[in-house]
Simulated assay, not measured.
Amino acid sequence: MSTSFVVQYIVIALIVLASALYAFRKLAPALTNRWMASASIRFSQPGHAAWVRAFGRRLQPKQATGDCSDGCSTCSACGPKPPASAKGDAMPLEFRPRQR
C-alpha cells in the first residue's frame, strides 16, 4: 500500500469522525455537554501544563443564560408552538371550484 492511500484513508477517517461527532452533539446535547464539562475539569487542574489548562478552558461548555436561544430545555418554554387553531387565530378554509 502506497503512502498516498494511507494519507487518503486517514483524511477520510478524520472527516467521518468529525461528522459523527457533529451529529452526536446535535442529537444528544445534554450528554455531550456533561462529557465536555468532565473533560474540561480534568484538563484544567493546576498540575497540568499551561497549554493543557488552556485546552481544558476551551472545552468548557457554554452555560445556559435563561435565553430561549440556549436550547437548555429546562423550562419547557422553548418547545413547539401550538397550532394556529389552538390560539384562536384560525383562518377558515375556502373551497373554490376549478376554473375551466
Rank of each mutant, 00 (worst) to 15 (best):
M1P: 01
S2K: 05
T3W: 02
T3G: 01
F5G: 08
F5Y: 13
F5C: 13
V7I: 12
V11E: 12
I12F: 13
A13C: 13
L14F: 06
L14A: 08
I15F: 07
V16D: 04
L17I: 09
S19C: 15
A20D: 07
A20W: 14
A20G: 12
L21P: 03
Y22F: 13
A23Q: 15
F24L: 12
L27E: 05
A28T: 06
P29K: 05
N33R: 15
R34E: 09
W35C: 10
M36A: 15
A39T: 06
R42S: 14
F43R: 10
Q45M: 09
A50Q: 08
W51L: 10
V52P: 04
F55K: 09
F55D: 03
R57S: 08
R58V: 00
L59V: 05
P61Q: 02
Q63Y: 02
Q63S: 11
C68L: 12
C68K: 09
S69W: 07
D70H: 01
G71R: 03
G71F: 01
S73I: 00
S73T: 05
T74H: 08
C75Q: 06
S76C: 00
S76P: 00
A77I: 07
G79A: 10
G79W: 02
P82E: 03
A84M: 02
A86D: 15
A86G: 09
K87H: 03
D89Q: 07
M91R: 09
P92Y: 04
L93K: 07
E94V: 13
F95Q: 04
Q99C: 08
R100N: 14
